[in-house]
Design a binder for these strands. Structure first.
Lengths: 187, 187, 187, 187
DNA sequence: TATGAATGAGCATTCATTCAT
DNA sequence: AATGAATGAATGCTCATTCAT
């Protein structure tokens, strides 16, 4: 659940979320965050021992936002093949409404190739949840021999990430449309 | 052609190439570059007006490196379907030998969401060359109705980028192997 | 009021005041200021967003210093003509005790012909206060037809600035003595 | 005489003259000079051992420019009182046509309070020539007792410098008009 | 004469973090 | 729980000058 209170901590996380995602983690300074959040610097460090910890909170929040958006897209959808397509359509809206900022997990790994373990773990964890979503849906599909379930899910997952990064690169959703078209031949 | 001389300029570019790719652009400071290149700071700024310009040179060099590696992989390969698979195999070796640092073009865009035009243009240009490679190969394939050429090339391109970023995220080449398997069903 | 506490901010301003006035604004680096003030660089930037803002504080302080010195010179002086002469005598001591560094407002404008608005405005403001002082005194003089008040004040003001810059150029107070002699023919 | 040839040396001096006067000495870098002059850096250092030496050349050139302009203003003027007024009128045009950049000699001293002897000497030398001009004219005036010659010349000189710096500060020629009015009561 | 290339020292500014209250 | 003030280290970049050709 995304907190809607106006506590200092909430102010900090929501501001960091917005800025890290829009500008990137390394290009967003602590000063900008506290300024736009309207809190004191020491308050930030009271709630988050370091910028890295704030980053972990940001990644969790990004998952929450994506997750709740996806839930809305899946309301009333029971067919797993349809659910997968809806997931891609959801990503399309997600990117449009977020200035084509791509996938926060991929980006944080792109920015910090070998630095923080804490951050890396959270990003990979979130990534795995996306992966698992496709596995779950494919498992529910009829007519898919169990031998092929993982292969199909992996292919879909590859198309999903490929579409996400290309949408960021080209700043439009054509790659997602391409992916949906490819998808429809597979499922 | 990658210069192999030992001039100051070459020292700067090759050091920047190594560090930008390994550590990321924003986490690599000018100071580290000149230190490891063994040149004076003003020498760097004599050859490159700004860090951004050095970044453009880095992106060009990355393309040269990838491009020459790919050429070696394609030697003696005339079948376009085979060439596409070789391209994915090449990527596998590229990532293994580069510590799973992913795609420099995607990463630079991930790091600088809305900054420099110069950098963005070079990154997108390089990305388009990858896209064009797949289009060229698919065009050469028999039995592909011309209506489907672009669709197929786009799907391959999505798999290529999906596999690249997932290999970076998970630090192994399984995603590339998954992509090759998906590929073989398509071509 | 000139603060006499020993806070970090006060240390910065008083050191900047001394160095800017003695060496000039452009020849005084932030590094020298923090070194001689004995504070950290980030502390300076905590209190002053930029070197320009510190310059504005310097110009204000210069006015305070001149102003309080002038007040002492005018103690017990009621005759306006005498007050004007005392003002020139005060300038003489001011320059002697400040190594003939001239007028800080004029100098900052001389150093930054078309740069910062913030600085320029403060300098012109301070300059106008000097002008106004002469106008006020002349107004208080008897036997001056009101038609001539501004003309006389302007002439005195010209002598004042002429004497100040010439004292700086020649590094002695003869120009001020010349100005006082000219003055005595006028009032 | 101001050289009108297009030699490298001439290019350098005329560019430096323009930039030093417009922007100030310390705010004008060697790089900007050579760029705008269209010469190589080492060419500048071939002709001028240091930036200071170039500054001396600049000050000499400023004198030549002022001097030739003044000569034009004095053509056909034989009355010394009239000549003095013409000198002030000349200054008015000089400042208007030079963006109210003030007196280059005063400014260079304002910028470099205790640095270079070479520069300081040239500036004071030029300043003394201005002083001497007024002495010469006053000496030629009838009805001035020889005891008073220097006093009167000094007063005029004070008005001249006061008017020059105030014109720079306020960016208009009202101070010069004030000075001329004061002048006319004196001579 | 003239130049392209190289440099060490310095610039103003920002970084994430900590401390005393 | 919250803050204003302080910091050492690093940031990207520019300075006037020199050297080999």
């Amino acid at each position: 659940m995304i907190s809607t209170d106006h506590s200092v901590k909430e102010q900090i996380v929501s501001t960091a979320d917005r800025l890290f995602y829009r500008q990137g983690y390394n290009l967003t300074g602590i000063n900008q965050i506290i300024e736009e959040a309207g809190v004191a610097k020491a308050s930030l460090y009271y709630h988050f021992p370091s910028k890295e910890d704030l980053c972990v909170a940001y990644l969790k929040r990004r998952y929450e936002k994506w997750s709740s958006m996806l839930s809305r897209y899946l309301e009333g959808v029971s067919d797993p093949a349809k659910a997968i397509v809806r997931c891609f359509e959801c990503r399309s809206e997600y990117l449009i409404s977020n200035d084509f900022s791509g996938c926060s997990y991929i980006r944080i790994i792109a920015e910090m190739p070998q630095r923080s373990d804490k951050i890396n773990q959270q990003a990979v964890l979130n990534k795995e949840k996306q992966h698992q979503f496709f596995i779950d849906q494919v498992k529910r599909m009829k007519d898919i021999p169990s031998d092929n379930v993982l292969d199909l899910a992996n292919t879909i997952y590859l198309l999903f990430d490929g579409a996400t990064v290309q949408s960021q690169v080209y700043r439009n959703v054509l790659p997602i449309e391409n992916a949906i078209r490819a998808l429809q031949k597979l499922i």
